[in-house]
């Protein structure tokens, strides 16, 4: 068993070398989580806005369920998607199991509730402020949703960030539906799990460092952008 300092030293060396395999793993992680974020945003943003603005009977029930689903366990999502995509599953004929697409599907399902619930919170407040004015302008429902999403853009960026953070950091769903196949479905988190179990702590630690660095960078960039945009165009 290596000591922590030794591993850390080796990890930094590996990260600095940044070889092809490492690059591939990082790139696939970003691609899968980025794609999951894009699809989840396309669904979650309008859905959250719709739930925030409409007045139907089970609205509050649905909102409560969606909010509860923010804490969906990744392994359970992985298992359900696995069952759907496996040969006997409803979507078996698509032959998607153990592909990056399967991983995107699982992560999308995982983060839709996060984006939907946070969007609903933001839009609910804005809708309260703007509903009379938007009625006066005679806007259709879809135009209202578009307007409010744009008005809430700074807060919604945080919702998207939360979704991205969740998907890039989770391991349970992608390892089940992706299978952690080298050069095909191996991402940072699954590699960390695998290398740790093999005792190859330096590579695991190196990837861990990169994962944290990516999270920090994405967060920092977004905060900067948000503050800059707020000052330039806003409040």
């Amino acid at each position: 068993m290596q000591s922590f300092t030794q591993s850390l030293h080796e990890a930094v060396r590996l990260v600095a070398a940044f070889d092809g395999d490492l690059r591939e793993i990082i790139l696939l992680s970003l691609q899968v989580s980025g794609m999951a974020l894009a699809v989840a945003a396309l669904i979650g943003l309008p859905l959250g806005a719709f739930l925030a603005m409409s007045q139907f009977r089970f609205r509050q029930v649905i909102l409560t369920i969606v909010t509860a689903l923010m804490g969906l366990p990744p392994v359970v999502v992985g298992l359900v998607v696995y069952l759907l995509l496996s040969n006997n599953g409803a979507l078996g004929p698509l032959q998607l199991l153990y592909t990056p697409t399967a991983m995107v599907i699982a992560q999308t399902i995982l983060i839709i509730p996060i984006i939907t619930a946070l969007t609903a919170q933001t839009i609910e407040q804005l809708h309260h402020e703007y509903k009379d004015q938007l009625s006066l302008l005679g806007l259709s429902n879809s135009a209202r949703i578009k307007t409010l999403l744009w008005e809430g853009r700074f807060d919604l960026a945080t919702a998207l960030l939360a979704g991205f953070g969740r998907s890039i950091a989770e391991v349970g769903a992608v390892i089940i539906v992706g299978g952690n196949i080298n050069h095909v479905t191996r991402v940072m988190t699954t590699t960390i799990a695998l290398e740790t179990s093999k005792g190859n702590l330096s590579l695991a630690l190196g990837l861990g460092l990169i994962l944290i660095a990516i999270s920090l960078t994405v967060n920092a960039l977004l905060m900067l952008l948000r503050n800059y945009a707020r000052r330039a165009a806003n409040e």
Binding site: E129, Y130, D132, Q133, S135, L136, L137, G138, L139, A143, T147, E151, A233, N234, E235
Partner: peptide, 29 residues
Amino acid sequence: RRRVGLLLQRPVLLRRSALANITYALRAA
């Protein structure tokens, strides 16, 4: 709807430039 205007006591403005607030309303019309 757009023939009848109402100015609320507290102005409700969009988080955009002054000009964009008016262009938005005109485009909506």
